[in-house]
Write a protein that binds this DNA or RNA. Sequence first.
DNA 1: CTGAAAGCGCTTACAG
DNA 2: CTGAAAGCGCTTACAG
Lengths: 333, 333
Amino acid sequence: MAEVVTLTDVARAAGVSPSTVSRILSGTARVTPETRQKVMGEIERLDYQPNILAQGLKRGQSMTVGVLTQELNSPFFDGTVQGIEFGFEDSDYDPIFAGGHSRKSEEKRVLEVLGRRRVDAMIIVGGFLPDPLLVELARSTVLVIVGRKVSGLEEQCIYIDNVKGGFDATKHLIDLGHRRIAHITGIPSNLDAIDRFQGYRQALESARIPYDHQLVVEGAYTEQSGLFAVETLLSRGNRFTAVFCANDQMACGARLAFYRRGMRVPDDISLVGFDGLQYVLFAIPPLTTIRQPMFEMGQGAARLTLSLLEGKKPPHITFATPLLVRESTAMAR
Amino acid sequence: MAEVVTLTDVARAAGVSPSTVSRILSGTARVTPETRQKVMGEIERLDYQPNILAQGLKRGQSMTVGVLTQELNSPFFDGTVQGIEFGFEDSDYDPIFAGGHSRKSEEKRVLEVLGRRRVDAMIIVGGFLPDPLLVELARSTVLVIVGRKVSGLEEQCIYIDNVKGGFDATKHLIDLGHRRIAHITGIPSNLDAIDRFQGYRQALESARIPYDHQLVVEGAYTEQSGLFAVETLLSRGNRFTAVFCANDQMACGARLAFYRRGMRVPDDISLVGFDGLQYVLFAIPPLTTIRQPMFEMGQGAARLTLSLLEGKKPPHITFATPLLVRESTAMAR
DNA sequence: CTGAAAGCGCTTACAG
DNA sequence: CTGAAAGCGCTTACAG
């Protein structure tokens, strides 16, 4: 990085002042065609790239957006992050990721990124940060939150209806004639998990199936926890013919548990997941699940951020969560 | 982002010059304890965060590292990217990701990121960029390449021995008594794919098993392509009792193809993958595979970059690719 | 030990 | 239409 061309170099080469070059670049210029020609020629010839740092310092914008991800190293975050990246691709902004892996508190990290990098906006993926902090933060910076609904900040949140998702998943099983439907929850403190569980209960209720807490086991979103959950369920000795898992990963773990016991899916047990991860289309058997459009949500978050940065108030987008019926569910026998 | 505190504010509050504050911050200072005390106090009180952009402009460093990922939206990239993020977490550098999704040519994107953002280093993940370009690039910037070995730049490459991986995978099947071993390749232009195929052939040769091109089908690293490949294999009518797939995703696709035909794994067919993705530990049955330490490689790339940035020449690390024997392989009958 | 000054590479009123 | 000047927030020789 020795021979970097500066705006001054271009000006000198073109025989004009830096001001003029700057104006031409920004389009603010009222210049003679000849001057413009000459300058553009030199820019091309010298392969000049404006220094964003210098521009940022002057304009008071860093042209970066801080993206705070959480500790969970999951396909959900991967998908969302990819969508975010994609959404900024053709903009002048670049996302800076502040991963949530280290020991530093989340809160501190947000503030650090905001402060040191002078990011023009922040995207928060998921949710450990308390609502009040986010509301506070939203006052001093452009803020978009994905995968979570913060009251007072609804317009800046990208989320799905997890209750409905949980309802639809359970309803699907009920429609197939299942009555003894187990549920493996997500992390109990997680709002999505709570909502999906809500949906499960509502579906049971609307079908007048009594709720049985013996059929509910706490999971942790991992495959392993899904496997354990099924073992717990089985050890309790209560009969059930279907399981709704709060995410696909746990469904995969559950599936393996059944495989180990020689219980067939969907012949003996129907299984529904949540997320719609690419690869569960190739599970054995292909998993019926509720799709959560992670990539699209990430992309939506990027777009929303961009709009907000431009001072626009775009319409709020709702993301649908279709039920993808595959081969892990069948009529109850 | 209105009320941002600057170094000058701190200086004013502490009753000293900006120079002094700057020196204290950088540790260059020979100052009286009292002055230091006073200044540190104000920094704390005002919650001052140095503006990295301004520092960068002055020092000629942006404190950012450009990370170029490729179009493949795969678990391999996810894992690597996470490792890279993690590796920079406790450093003063932040990674800026230039995703490989848009239509712009890869080459152009590298140059753009380098130029506009004035990144201090680049990490290239995977490989569409021609070797000569990388060699050229390495002359003007700190460059690290992960998942690929570029001759002349070996010290800056983080890679595994794909030939050995392919060999070990195939050898495992041979050791189980298999003689008719099929292979589903990766994208034929991909070096990793070529190497894994090489390993396959070498293993056959070392066991004096004649190579049969009828047993090799071209794949594209996706689950779908693995599924198709098995169908092709089956339609050719040649007997085989085992398949080595160039990655886990294709192995999952292949597995589904067998499931559809009612062929049991591992009873009728043994299956080996490559990558060691987390979730294939929960495949039905758990997949035997060669582990590629993606996260560690990403982290290694970050560390290597950091060392290079500090002018060090760290020892070259080799990443092992252990065979993970699970339940998708069994003795040939 | 500490301050004034110059400068990193831009942009943008202010003149002319 | 175009240039000279000031300034964004820092750092770092240069004085004292």
